[in-house]
């Protein structure tokens, strides 16, 4: 596949009409890239009753939105979504195509890559341009991260010339930035009757209660809380700092807190600040916390030698029941006295 269209495409993942937060982060990242390369940023929105959401993509950076609003896209089906995207990609041949690293993104992106023999990259966290070649993609490389046996590896990956580039981007900051005075085109696409048929049928779907853990600040409690009352303290600290709460597995198993707050492999969070109270920081827990170079980890723990203290930015050694109330008090004190003007609500 040669002669690519000089456009950057972003797949706008949505669930039953709600655009996934990772899309906004992708738009934020790729808008900057589009500016540098002087290329239009295009998003693809597939779903049912979603046309009115296209505006949300434009005000966050998209120049053009292709919308397919069709009942066949109501439930996510791996084959249906991949085939619709494939048709569109084959007809337009964009050079760079971005997906969020979600279950859906990771299911359809490789399928598309295999069909058109693209180069496909996973776990991308940043794009790197060689400035001597600002106007083309040839010198773009992709920074990817992977955790292997608890160690973080950073790998730079490139894609062969003359290949369409598919990049699956890991959510990290979940920044949602609305830009001023933006306009863009919304283009409807339509399917012919029976153009797409699925071999897969949904029999039953359970949607889990959305937890508000996509926040920038998470205060988490672990076994070190000792009992369920500990979470009262955790909630107070979260409230004082303006964050939400989370938990390691023991408090969930011991029924101190609902399963919705469990952080781990199946519920990965990407806060800017992670405050771990009475959590030792074992691998199974830390798999659930996306850490990048800017993530601040604050650990409050009695044991100065446990794992979390090794990785913490600020390691506080002591009894959480003594320290947390003091921190809350101090925050309140500074607020009321306005000793420092820097704080924002």
């Amino acid at each position: 596949m040669n002669n690519f269209l000089k456009e950057i495409w972003v797949y706008a993942e949505q669930h039953y009409g709600k655009i996934d937060k990772v899309v906004y982060e992708l738009l934020n990242k790729s808008r900057k890239l589009a500016n540098k390369l002087n290329m239009p940023l295009v998003t693809i929105l597939l779903g049912h009753k979603i046309r009115k959401k296209a505006k949300q993509l434009i005000i966050r950076g998209a120049d053009k939105v292709y919308v397919l609003d069709d009942v066949i896209c109501n439930d996510f089906k791996d084959d249906v979504y991949a085939n619709i995207l494939l048709k569109l990609i084959k007809s337009k041949k964009p050079e760079l195509l971005l997906f969020g690293s979600t279950l859906i993104g990771k299911s359809i992106a490789p399928r598309i890559a295999a069909n058109i023999e693209a180069g496909i990259i996973s776990n991308c966290v940043a794009f790197k341009l060689n400035y001597s070649s600002k106007t083309n993609f040839e010198k773009i490389s992709f920074i990817t991260t992977n955790k292997y046996e608890g160690k973080k590896e950073i790998t730079t990956v490139t894609i062969s010339k003359n290949k369409l580039k598919i990049v699956v981007v890991k959510p990290d900051t979940l920044i949602d930035r609305v830009l001023q005075n933006r306009t863009g085109n919304i283009i409807d696409i339509k399917l012919k009757d029976n153009e797409i048929v699925s071999k897969i049928k949904s029999l039953n779907i359970k949607i889990k209660q959305q937890t508000e853990m996509s926040s920038n600040i998470i205060v988490s409690g672990g076994r070190g809380l000792g009992n369920e009352k500990g979470f009262i303290l955790i909630k107070q600290l979260a409230k004082a700092i303006g964050g939400t709460i989370g938990a390691s597995k023991p408090p969930v198993d011991l029924k101190w807190i609902s399963n919705n707050f469990l952080i781990g492999k199946h519920n990965i969070v990407s806060p800017k600040v992670y405050i771990a109270c009475g959590i030792s920081g074992q691998m199974k827990h830390m798999e659930g916390v996306n850490i990048n170079n800017d993530t601040i980890i604050i650990a409050i723990n009695k044991d100065p030698h446990c794992k979390i203290m090794e990785i913490a930015t600020y390691a506080i050694v002591g009894d959480l029941y003594k320290i947390i109330p003091e921190i809350i008090k101090e925050i309140m004190f500074r607020r009321t006295n306005k000793i420092n003007n820097v704080y924002k609500k």
């Binding site: 990956v157 894609i159 062969s160 930015t313």
Partner: peptide, 16 residues
């Protein structure tokens, strides 16, 4: 089609 050009292990301790 993809080529790994550089690999670092990032274990550097931020100013802890």
């Amino acid at each position: 089609n993809t080529h790994i050009s550089k690999k670092d292990e990032n274990n550097k301790q931020k100013n802890k």
